[in-house]
Design a protein around this nucleic acid. Structure first.
Lengths: 211, 211
DNA sequence: GGCCTTTTGTCAGCGGGCTGACAGACATCA
DNA sequence: TGATGTCTGTCAGCCCGCTGACAAAAGGCC
């Protein structure tokens, strides 16, 4: 029932990845755009290395749909910007090209479908979050979703700045900052450094995330 | 740049529809559920007659993703409830079955992809609306999207109750109601009956929708 | 070490939108 | 025709979260 924000996509994408072996590998530096809404040639790509941020823009506001990790497959045909958060490498393939290849390998016909489904599922998570839950709940969700190794008091890596995190959970930098302070005062989390935080009371965080 | 709420899906779905000709036709009465989140068998279906509402639930809150019209093709594998707003008829096909048929007709391989893309696009519209725009802008958008025949002062059919409309644009019944009153006082819209409204100043409504 | 930029914490003020409550309008049916 | 249930309009009260402003802290770079 929990709907973690931007769950890292399950990658049973091993087979998919092989499809990209022989195609153009593009390198991106930090903050470089891979694609933008007006960009009309739809592509499917495989993120070989680095981290990409997929976001919507509206005036001077920005909302991040998801953060892609190495190993993820995604398509550019959503009405979003895709930007490198750090130096990255992607294998890009034109959508038509991709479809034809997939036809040749019938087992892979479902590949595009799978990517789309994952994306869709992520979007619905996002809608649930925005429509039903307040910032506090979304933050708790996010913190719990960052846990990579389960533990009594797990450590997490905050790889984004406060501003970027705010854009991901749909709030302002200030609100997020004061909320994090509050959580520290309550002893639910502990800041070890800018990047490293400890979650001191996961059960209470879960409860906070639940509603 | 406008992102109308729940745009009625373009149906170049004529070919698609023919795929469903020979399969089970299910009749639904008003308020009957076609599927719900726990329902595990994924289906693709064609709405032959009637109107369906696709919505998310969370506690006692409800958010409508889209309203399906006769002629639309959709799939149940989203984490949503699908309910008949009025007596309806759907042709339902198991997803595996559907995929196999699509394989046999290579031209239709993209059918599932297209449906998923449309759905995804609608979800992103919704996210934009929730993340960036206030209730006033969403309402203006919605009103403009209801116009079927362009005119200086077009008439629109509000086929939903205030409550249902509120759930569609993501607000409360009360807020929507008072907002509609305000628009009337400003002379932007005119209520002819519960169902029929006239949009008196589309350009100003567009402006209101823009930001 | 010192300078400059980016990031973070904090506060006051305000407003959008939710809630609960109630009355009026409308529909349906006996 | 009246009785009952549903839908709609409206108001007061409240709180979440946004904005703008400023200071403190942390990082880069020479």
């Amino acid at each position: 029932m929990t709907a973690p924000i931007s769950p890292h996509q399950q990658h049973s994408n091993q087979q998919l990845a092989s499809l990209f072996d022989d195609c153009h590998c593009r390198r991106l530096v930090s903050n470089e755009l891979l694609s933008y809404p007006q960009d009309m040639d739809d592509c499917v790509f495989y993120l070989r290395r680095g981290r990409l941020r997929v976001y919507l823009c509206y005036g001077d506001k920005l909302f991040t749909l998801t953060i892609l990790q190495a190993g993820d497959v995604y398509s550019t045909h959503t009405r979003a910007f895709i930007e490198a958060l750090e130096p990255s490498e992607v294998n890009v393939m034109d959508l038509n090209n991709f479809s034809q290849r997939a036809l040749a390998h019938p087992l892979l016909t479902g590949a595009v479908t799978r990517v789309l489904s994952q994306t869709l599922s992520g979007c619905i998570d996002t809608i649930e979050n925005l429509a039903f839950r307040d910032v506090r709940a979304r933050l708790a969700s996010y913190l719990l979703a960052q846990v990579s190794q389960p533990a009594e008091q797990p450590l997490i890596n905050m790889q984004l700045t406060t501003e970027q995190t705010a854009q991901l959970i749909g709030t302002s930098r200030q609100t997020l900052s004061s909320l994090l302070s509050e959580l520290q005062r309550q002893g639910l989390v502990q800041k070890l450094s800018r990047q490293q935080w400890r979650l001191c009371d996961c059960s209470q965080l879960s409860q906070m995330a639940a509603l």
